[in-house]
């Protein structure tokens, strides 16, 4: 009787060892398969999608396969998956209530990935923050502002608010707002501005620069001088243009008006009285 019991016990041990071995093999080969499958799918998706979306998709495939492998391993070890799934369902409800924000960010992240409105390296403005996109992750987008701060923007914020992508297109228009005195000849001003645009190497030949008269301002005629430049050179080009406009107008004697205020001192039109108090040496002495 003892011999039979010992034999049964040894069989039971052997069976348990075998199931552990099977589980180990499923784990190793399963994870290997998950990696290979994710890499293959990633390589295929890279033909159609941007890098950020490919990374997200590859990760999703990996974790999906890894989940199936984990379930298979637990089954090999003799766990009842029905009980586990029931517990997981209750846990999911509890976690769902506790992590509504994360879930919202996660879903927003998926929408952003599908929408492909920006990618890593683009310059965007969102919620009042402007910066270069460092990474697009499941829960948030990481930005580097131009004064070198690290900003984390939740995906939900981006989905809910307006955002601007400055580098989506290769070229941008710089609008230089400039005013000239009423006495100036607009045709001559236009000529000076076009000559400036022609000389500037960063201003594109096409689309052609344009000068628009916006209206009659309080101090002078308001003009808009529009030039196209590369999106990457945009800020420097706009700054150069403002500087050049000032330099050219000074050289050509074109007056840039500024607000004038006339003070009325009463019924009589006598000049404003000016009183000099003390001399240079006596200033500050009372």
């Amino acid at each position: 009787m003892d011999t039979i019991l010992q034999t049964l016990d040894s069989w039971s041990h052997a069976e348990r060892a075998a199931s552990w071995l099977r589980a180990g093999a499923v784990l190793v080969f399963g994870l290997l398969l998950a990696r290979i499958l994710a890499a293959m799918v990633g390589r295929f998706a890279a033909r159609f999608w941007a890098v950020d979306n490919v990374v997200l998709f590859r990760r999703a495939v990996f974790w999906l396969v890894a989940g199936l492998v984990a379930a298979s391993v637990l089954r090999q070890l003799g766990f009842d998956l029905g009980v586990l799934l029931g517990a997981a369902g209750i846990l999911t409800v509890a976690i769902g209530f506790a992590s509504q924000t994360s879930a919202s960010n996660l879903i927003s992240g998926l929408f952003l990935a599908l929408e492909r409105s920006f990618q890593t390296g683009d310059a965007i403005t969102v919620g009042g923050t402007t910066g270069e996109v460092l990474s697009i992750d499941l829960l948030s987008v990481k930005l580097r502002t131009f004064d070198n701060r690290y900003v984390r923007v939740p995906n939900e914020t981006i989905v809910k608010s307006d955002f601007v992508n400055f580098t989506r297109f290769a070229i941008r228009r710089a609008d230089i707002m400039v005013g000239v005195a009423y006495k100036e000849d607009i045709a001559r001003v236009r000529q000076v501005l076009f000559a400036l645009a022609e000389r500037h190497t960063k201003v594109l030949e096409e689309p052609k620069p344009a000068v628009y008269v916006l209206g009659f301002g309080a101090s002078g005629v308001d003009l808009q001088f529009s030039c196209w430049a590369s999106a990457t050179d945009f800020f420097q080009t706009r700054s150069d243009l403002y500087e050049e406009v000032k330099r050219c107008f000074d050289a050509e004697g074109i007056e840039i008006p500024f607000p004038h205020v006339s003070l009325y001192t009463g019924a009589d039109t006598q000049p404003m009285p000016v009183r000099i108090e003390g001399t240079e040496g006596s200033r500050g002495q009372s």
């Binding site: 297109f169 070229i171 190497t201 594109l204 030949e205 096409e206 689309p207 196209w228 590369s230």
Partner: peptide, 10 residues
């Protein structure tokens, strides 16, 4: 050289 953009749109 002066750069320019060539194509059907901006």
């Amino acid at each position: 050289p002066k750069q320019t953009w060539f194509g059907p749109s901006t």
